[in-house]
Amino acid sequence: MMILITNNEDVVEQWKNCRDIVIMKRESDNMLDVLYCSRDLLHKGHCLLTHPFTGSLKPNESPYKSILVSETVKQLHVDHVATIEQCIASAQKSLENRPIPIYSEKLLRDFRLIDKDLISNGIMRAQESHQK
């Protein structure tokens, strides 16, 4: 089983019927809430399956973020905690510099498409090596 934290409805649409994935859908217009939610899971011993900063789009550009986290709990994965904390600090800073603009629906669809493609690569890789 794996946990997929996302605020991207296209990602939910694509992976909702997948047996080995629990989806935590977040309602937020930027990626911080998804990052905080993932961080709280890492603090309890879950570990990252995909990197929080997928894609070269900066946190104040793409509103969407999907992160895959392990369902099983082992002891604290210190490197992953450090990684997500640094991503949160960077996202807070860049959103503070300039909040996410209001995009047209067409553009939002493009952002959702890229986020969906990147996380799907991670999910397929995880399924291939039947991550638990």
Partner: peptide, 8 residues
């Protein structure tokens, strides 16, 4: 530079 951590 894959997104999947185990690949890294």
């Amino acid at each position: 530079e894959n997104v999947f951590m185990a690949d890294k």
